[in-house]
């Protein structure tokens, strides 16, 4: 099944707040972190928020991208808006 395509605006709707699903993007891929303990209410370690492209933030995180294997890959982030 082809992956769903997201724009940054669409991704922003999935911020985990008020019952919304929590999606994050890393290096062009979009992951559903709604079920992750570490992403409750769309926040991770207080400072990181869902609904965004976190490629640059993950580079400074105290863990690698390997932890993304624990969450579901659901789409790809397009280059438009």
């Amino acid at each position: 099944m082809p992956l769903r395509q997201f724009t940054l605006d669409e991704l922003a709707q999935y911020n985990g707040e008020n019952g919304a699903a929590a999606y994050i993007s890393f290096l062009g891929r979009v992951y559903d972190v709604s079920a992750s303990f570490q992403w409750q209410n769309g926040k991770h370690q207080v400072v990181h928020k869902a609904g965004k492209d976190l490629s640059s933030e993950l580079a400074e995180a105290p863990h690698g991208a390997d932890l993304l294997a624990r969450v579901r890959l659901i789409g790809e982030l397009g280059t438009e808006g």
């Binding site: 370690q45 400072v47 400074e60 995180a61 105290p62 863990h63």
Partner: peptide
């Protein structure tokens, strides 16, 4: 815990 305190140290 190791990740969490590394995060606090970094901040």
């Amino acid at each position: 815990a190791v990740r969490g305190y590394t995060h606090v140290c970094n901040l």
